[in-house]
Design a protein around this nucleic acid. Structure first.
Length: 914
DNA sequence: ATACATACC
DNA sequence: TACTGGTATGTAT
């Protein structure tokens, strides 16, 4: 079979068609002339039989099938099709050729074996032996010594040890790499203030402008003095070279360096020329002087070429492709496709199956490729074959997602899984808030012990960023997965949570304004919001229910968008809420005029003095996500989704004793007594349809709910937590549908509270904010007891104002005061901070050394910030926070622990050197 | 929109 | 004993 033949060709190793993913990856620099067969044999023997290996085999077979399919497709292609395709390719080629841009001078700089080099620099004993940075589980990078044994980045340490028993494995020390990286970047910025860092150890620069100016520079500006490392003396430096009083360069004394000879002891200064090569040589020289580390660089008319070039003379070398089409094409001719960034092992293998190994062949086969691959794929191939690439530094594009994940020893206990999930959400929320981001899509990632990866996503109607909100979604996604295999446990080795679909800056600003506007209108007696003119009642008097709703509808911008499409449930809910709200407000007004003076009604003065700071809370999210998960689990009727409808529970006279006695239909405003949720939702359905209102609702059966009752979710899951404070968390329904109705958000005034905008209640006779956040905390409440008594907890919370510790809904911090004025002032401050954040250009600078999480890690380890044994950017060991010691999960991964601290600081990605 | 795969460091 | 973590994007449904 042709494909097999080519697969064999693609996989230069020992003829194993099925092992291209397992065999040594030797096509990226540093591993020439190795005994691949021997190395692969060892790798194979070490891996064989492992779960990892089995999974890799499976994936490999999937790729093979994909290739087979492709070959079948290829066999069906006619000459005519090919001819037509060729015409299209030629046309596009012409266009691309016409717009070829050769005027920029793009440089890709890549530190050589960065992490390893740093460790070697700081520990000379490592210099002469094979070493790698990482752990027994995974290596970030290896030095060139180790590479001779086939030890390379992304290889697990225990396999590396098999290949090279003398290998020294040094734990990562990101603090150090970041510090060095910062030094290097200082230099970069002198050549291109807009340089684009790709990781700690590499960056793209556009030095076109620099070269333009450089032409006119006098020699003195291009003169750099050699730092005599031996004596520690700096010869006077014309262009300041600072601080390093270190050793001479550690690596590659015999490398094809084009940097000035450092060995010439009499050589005291180096004058660099004005050409691109000279400028880059100078840059690399300065890096070496400053850090004792070497870098390699590529110079070319675009990023794609520059990247390839930087690899060409690695380590400690550079290569330039001059800005001439002919030279570019000549360079591309023999370039293996795999050398191009973006072409990975799968693409390589697929192309190999088509007889394509280098870029020349790629160009030859473009017509075929255009028929076999998607548009974006073959366009990319065409660009590559023509030697085209990006010529501008794509301005640091906005991040699209943010996530956190963790690998650990087998975890089968659902409680533990929920707990870990919460911890991940906690960390993620911190990251989100640090960057001032809010996203609508929450994705749960699971990897089982067989290395099978699953992702489950849910898109909310509005953007979230708090732990509670994220967790409310994630835990439901997790629940579905747990339930789907129940009573078998999920046997996990990794869990991750991601938030994406961020609301854009344009979306966020009006959002913030509307929140402020809302708060101002509902200005409180706290003294913070002095504009008290408006109030809920004022809005009513204006017959302008919408003005009350305004903050809500702006907050949930997306639903209003989908409303236009009239597609989603959210849209229906949205308009429903608005209608219901209007109607109810009108009715309330009528009642008010009748019952004026009663303490169950509000008057304008009261309302003006009150401080209903309504913030979107987890409830909203829980409702929608739970509804989804329920219907998934149940294949249930619509009834479950009604949970998120504005079911209104009216407490009778005393909240403390009589909560949850009545449901009030938000449409017809009828009180319904002793009715289960299904019946109530059915009633609402009828009302919405405009049919007769059933004032004496029957106790319709609720088999679904009954089932829910029977299959009670783990008590440890968030349900119990969210439930207690967020009384309309849908989880109530999952657990005890007939009693703990989930939407009892009515205050004494009978104010209708939409599930999306809730949590007003009275404390000490004044309205204030009750945040559910952190109130019913998992850890602090006995897990099993929480589920059954949440309603009482709510009740107590509402009536027992004395010892109610208030929690700020913005910062989630419990406030020590019971004084509502003080509390509201605090909320005010928090909110203002939020607004300020929104208008800030970039995230606030973060002092890594003072990063709280980091500090805690230091505390644990008693070492200067070494976090090698603590996972996940110094995530607290999830279990340690919420599980008894005996349940501590075993964290396997040890790598890349605090990348994100740097990232969030610099707004740049941080990757290990590869 | 969701799920999964590929790729990068 | 032991095979990462974070982000973007492509492919497929």
């Amino acid at each position: 079979m042709e494909s097999l033949h080519h697969q064999g060709a693609a996989n230069s190793s020992s003829g194993a068609h099925l092992l291209s993913r397992i065999a040594l990856n030797d096509n990226k620099a540093g591993m020439e002339g190795l005994d691949r067969d021997k190395i692969n044999k060892i790798i194979l023997e070490t891996s064989k039989g492992s779960k990892f290996y089995e999974n890799e085999l499976k994936k490999e077979q999937q790729v093979n099938q994909r290739i087979e399919k492709m070959m079948e497709q290829k066999a069906r292609i006619t000459k005519e099709q090919l001819k037509q395709a060729q015409a299209e390719v030629d046309k596009l080629t012409c266009e691309l050729e016409r717009s070829r841009e050769l005027g920029r001078v793009i440089v890709h700089v890549d530190m050589d074996a960065f992490y390893a080099a740093v460790e070697m620099r700081d520990c000379p004993e490592l210099k002469d032996q094979p070493m790698a940075v990482g752990s027994m589980s995974m290596l970030s990078t290896s030095n060139y010594h180790a590479r001779r044994f086939g030890v390379r980045a992304a290889m697990p340490g225990f396999i590396a040890k098999k290949l090279c028993p003398n290998l020294v494995i040094v734990p990562t020390n990101f603090d150090k790499y970041r510090a060095v990286s910062a030094q290097v970047r200082e230099i970069f910025s002198e050549y291109d203030p807009h340089f684009m860092p790709m990781s700690l150890d590499e960056a793209y620069l556009d030095i076109t402008e620099h070269l333009e100016q450089r032409k006119h520079w006098p020699e003195t500006m291009r003169t750099y003095h050699i730092h005599d490392a031996k004596t520690g003396n700096d010869a006077d430096m014309s262009a300041a070279e600072s601080e390093r009083d270190d050793l001479s360069p550690v690596l590659f004394e015999d490398s094809p360096s084009s940097s000035p000879s450092l060995s010439g002891a009499d050589r005291k200064a180096e004058v660099f020329g004005t050409s691109a090569e000279e400028a880059v040589r100078e840059m690399r020289f300065r890096i070496e002087q400053k850090t004792s580390l070497t870098a390699s660089a590529g110079i070319a008319p675009n990023t794609m070429l520059a990247k390839v070039c930087s690899d060409k003379n690695k380590p400690n070398g550079q290569y330039r492709i001059p800005p001439e089409r002919q030279v570019v094409m000549e360079f591309m001719k023999d370039l293996p496709v795999r050398k191009v960034s973006g072409v990975g092992k799968v693409t390589e293998k697929m192309l190999a199956a088509l007889g394509i190994a280098n870029c020349d062949q790629l160009g030859q086969q473009m017509a075929l490729l255009s028929l076999l691959f998607s548009g974006s794929s073959w366009h990319n191939f065409l660009h590559i074959s023509l030697g085209l690439g990006s010529t501008c530094m794509a301005r640091n594009s906005e991040r699209k997602s943010i996530s956190t994940e963790m690998t650990f020893g087998e975890m089968s206990d659902a409680e533990e899984q929920y707990s870990l999930c919460r911890d991940l959400c906690h960390d993620l929320a911190e990251d989100l808030q640090r960057e001032g981001l809010k996203g609508k899509t929450v994705t749960l990632k699971l990897k089982n012990v067989k290395f099978e990866v699953k992702t489950r996503a849910f898109t909310l109607q509005y953007a979230v960023c708090s732990e509670e909100e994220i967790f409310a979604a994630a835990k439901d996604l997790l629940k579905v997965e747990i339930d789907s295999v129940s009573p078998q446990p999920l046997k996990l080795r990794l869990m991750g949570v991601r938030v994406s679909a961020f609301i854009s800056a344009e979306d966020k600003k009006p959002l913030q304004r509307s929140i402020m506007g809302f708060l101002q209108k509902d200005g409180s007696d706290s003294g913070s919001f002095t504009q008290c003119a408006g109030s809920v009642l004022k809005a009513e008097e204006d017959s302008d229910g919408a003005s009350f709703l305004k903050p809500q509808s702006t907050e949930m911008k997306e639903p209003s968008v989908s409303e236009q499409k009239s597609k989603s449930k959210g849209a229906q809910q949205q308009s429903f809420f608005q209608r219901a709200q209007l109607k109810r407000l009108q009715q309330q007004k009528e009642q008010m005029s009748v019952m004026a003076g009663t303490d169950t009604t509000n008057n304008s003065a009261d309302a003006a003095a009150a401080t209903p700071i309504d913030l979107p809370t987890t409830n909203n999210l829980s409702d929608t996500t739970s509804a989804k998960s329920l219907s998934n689990t149940n294949s249930g009727t619509d009834t479950t989704s009604h949970v998120s409808k504005p079911a209104v529970l009216k407490p009778s006279f005393k909240i403390s004793t009589q909560v949850l006695q009545f449901l009030i239909c938000p449409v017809c405003n009828t009180e319904m007594k002793d009715v289960n949720l299904t019946a109530f939702n059915n009633h609402i359905d009828e009302c919405l349809k405009g049919s007769a209102v059933d004032n004496e609702p029957t106790h319709l059966d609720a088999p679904k709910e009954q089932e829910e009752l029977d299959s009670k979710p783990p008590a440890s899951s968030s349900e119990s937590r969210t439930l207690k404070s967020s009384t309309h968390d849908s989880s109530c329904n999952e657990e005890k549908p007939s009693t703990s109705i989930s939407v009892p958000l009515v205050d004494e005034d009978g104010d209708f509270k939409t599930p999306f905008f809730c949590h007003r209640t009275k404390i000490n006779g004044k309205r204030s904010v009750i945040s559910k956040k952190k109130m019913p905390v998992f850890e602090s409440s006995s897990k099993s007891s929480t589920t059954t008594h949440d309603l009482e907890a709510v009740t107590e919370m509402s009536s027992n104002s004395k010892d109610s510790s208030l929690t700020c809904p913005v910062c989630s911090q419990p406030q020590s005061t019971d004084d509502l004025v003080l509390f509201n002032r605090h909320v005010d401050l928090c909110l203002n901070q939020d607004v300020l954040l929104e208008f800030r250009e970039s995230p606030p600078p973060v002092d890594h050394s003072e990063e709280p999480a980091l500090k805690s890690v230091r505390g644990q380890l008693g070492d200067q910030g070494r976090v090698s044994e603590v996972k996940g950017k110094s995530k607290r060991q999830p279990s340690s926070s919420s599980l008894p010691p005996s349940k501590k999960i075993k964290v396997l991964s040890t790598k890349h622990t605090i990348d994100k601290f740097f990232k969030s600081n610099a707004g740049q990605k941080v990757y290990p050197e590869r």
